[in-house]
Amino acid sequence: MGITRRSFITRAAVAGITAASIITGAGKAAASVSARGNFALLHDLDKCDGCPHLDTPACVAACRIKNKPNFPEPQQPIKYYWPQKNFEDWSGKRDVTTRLTPYNWTYVQHLEFEHKGQKVKVHIPRKCMHCDNPPCSTLCPFGVNDKTPEGAVIIDPKGCFGGAKCRDVCPWHIPQRQAGVGLYLKVAPDYAGGGVMYKCDMCHDLITQGEQPACVSACPRGAIQFGNKEGLRQYARQWADENNGYVYGDAENGGTANFYISKVPFEAINEAIQAQDLDGKPGKIGMPVNIENPLDEPGKMMSGFLMAPVAGVLAAAVSTYQIMKGGTDDED
């Protein structure tokens, strides 16, 4: 097998990161503190035709084959999330390919709508956006959801408790839960935890070996690209300039590693998704434009942490001065 130019660049970049972390001697820790991800995916909605000739789009099928060993095998019978009378179990619906489930980490939204008086068809391969500042990872109560130096956001299935907080705080609600698996079964399965959360991991094992994610390799139209993040971002912007087009995923949630380019504005696409794809249940996801990172708001409060101790010292200085001067409120 010949080495294509792109795979050569990918391999070189991965080798570079590995070498750098070995040289610094700090390994994983140092690398993950500074690097905010070197790789990204780019979906060209102009090229994606949703694989009309196939039952399942090629990227979805490839993802399912590649990740089959990672799919959960729950212990039966599955218990309710007491005191609730429910649990999330997809093990009997493993062949669902039209939404995100623990057994289906990418799906294609097929939309048909009118835009500027013309009928348009848009097909959108959806999966984790691998955010630059992922709220799912930052807010994971168990610290088992990490942004890797490569850019992939990964949930550790061995440490995940399945509380589904990551799905709640994700602006797209992407991670999906399977009950009856994972650590919670060993702790207090009746009262805490709910399984393990599953989502796209950017084929982290493949990309660290210098290969492409399965969906990228499988696309028959080259509609999904994988590569250096900065390069793909520039390509997306340039493409949008030249084609009067639009980019999704660069600004959203403060930046992601998953770009979409389209000649139809994403506001129109999101409207069509809301009308044609969503069913109000987990696993069907919208495409809201310019969505803000939920952690921006708490981030703005940081100056309060700096001011609080200063104010405390000043207030005490005034108070002690008055008391020691012989104020009427002093203790005996």
Binding site: S32, L139, V144, D146, N293
Partner: peptide
Amino acid sequence: AYKNLPGVSFSPEAV
């Protein structure tokens, strides 16, 4: 709280 700031991330072990 510092770790939660955009652009700051610690190693998984530290977190």
